[in-house]
């Protein structure tokens, strides 16, 4: 009996961790390619081709992390999956249609007659925008615990724009890493705008979060946990200031430090994500479902865990391989 209790605790937490890990990786990885999609509107071909070229070999695998995250939620916490996706029925559908158009535009834009190409470019941008907005909106709804009402809705919509700025930052810093010349200078400029938009949004959303969700309020003003919650925004601010001066100095001769902005924006994302998750714990659906009470049968979870542990090293291995094959500055992709 005691063993069962043990299993009933560590297994759900392991899966909550795996889901969080997949979602974070998704936000970072698809974040940069959605960001590139958002920014693609600001340039013309052939620069746009190079931008798309910088994400072409990766976007599909990036999106798979969403399938894994949602899939693990579905299999490990079916009750939570049904509850969350039921509450978010319409924004999920909107996001999916956005993902559809974003994803197929990659291929259609170079495979149709020239007069139609511009339209697919636009659908690529619009799809990326719809996906970013709806994902941000959904995170916002999650934060407010799906409460109805004008203030909660407004807060969620605001979160949508925050994620647009965040993905824009990821996209711009990815482009600093993967491009050169004029396009790279553009990317530096985009990054400088995006980072301040994102910081302003993040501060505003953090300050207002305790008022739209009382659970977060209690969390924030209870010691000693509060000291940790204060440290994280401070570190983020420090990173932002470093980023600001770094961007002022880029591009440098010999392309030095071109990877730094991307690394910093990933760090900010990770901090923000950890902060969010921390404010929810021990709930899997804020205020509704606890992690331990939502889990599926242990024997099935063990089967999945076994598979995950066996497959993960391979997965990481060939992901690194794919990124190595396409390392260096991006070019317009071609099939031959």
């Amino acid at each position: 009996m005691n063993d069962m209790m043990q299993e009933g605790i560590w297994l759900p937490y392991t899966f909550a961790f795996l889901i969080g890990f997949s979602m974070l990786l998704y936000a970072v990885l698809d974040g940069y390619d959605l960001g590139v999609g958002l920014l693609s509107r600001f340039v013309q071909r052939p620069d746009r081709d190079r931008m798309v070229g910088s994400i072409g070999p990766f976007w599909d695998a990036n999106e798979t992390w969403l399938v894994l995250g949602v899939g693990l939620l579905l299999v490990a916490f079916p009750a939570a999956h049904g509850l969350v996706l039921g509450e978010l029925y319409l924004p999920v559908a909107l996001m999916l249609i956005g993902l559809i158009f974003r994803g197929v535009s990659f291929d259609f834009r170079k495979k149709v007659s020239p007069e139609k190409q511009e339209r697919w470019d636009f659908s690529f941008f619009l799809g990326s925008l719809v996906v970013s907005l709806s994902q941000g909106y959904m995170v916002g709804r999650f934060v407010v615990g799906f409460q109805p009402g004008f203030v909660s809705e407004l807060y969620s919509i605001f979160f949508g724009f925050l994620v647009v700025a965040g993905y824009g930052l990821m996209g711009a810093t990815w482009l600093i890493l993967k491009t050169e010349g004029e396009l790279q200078r553009f990317a530096v400029r985009w990054a400088r705008r995006a980072i301040w938009a994102m910081v302003a949004g993040a501060v505003l959303s953090s300050v207002t979060a305790p008022f739209v969700n009382t659970r977060i309020y209690d969390r924030m003003f209870s010691f000693p946990e509060a000291s940790l919650l204060i440290a994280m925004p401070l570190v983020s601010m420090l990173l932002t200031v470093i980023m600001h001066f770094l961007l002022g100095a880029l591009p440098m001769p010999g392309d030095r430090l071109a990877a730094m902005p991307f690394a910093i924006s990933v760090s900010i994302f990770v901090l923000g994500f950890v902060g969010l998750v921390y404010s929810f714990h021990p709930y899997i659906v804020p205020g509704r479902l606890l992690i331990v009470e939502a889990a599926a049968a242990p024997e099935s979870l063990m089967v999945i865990l076994f598979g995950t542990l066996v497959v993960f090293p391979f997965l990481i291995g060939y992901t690194i391989f794919a990124y190595r094959v396409f390392r260096g500055k991006a070019t317009d992709l071609s099939y031959d």
């Binding site: 599909d60 060939y318 794919a322 992709l333 099939y335």
Partner: peptide, 8 residues
């Protein structure tokens, strides 16, 4: 992951 390598 392999599709990118295969295509491009």
């Amino acid at each position: 992951s392999m599709l990118g390598v295969m295509l491009f």
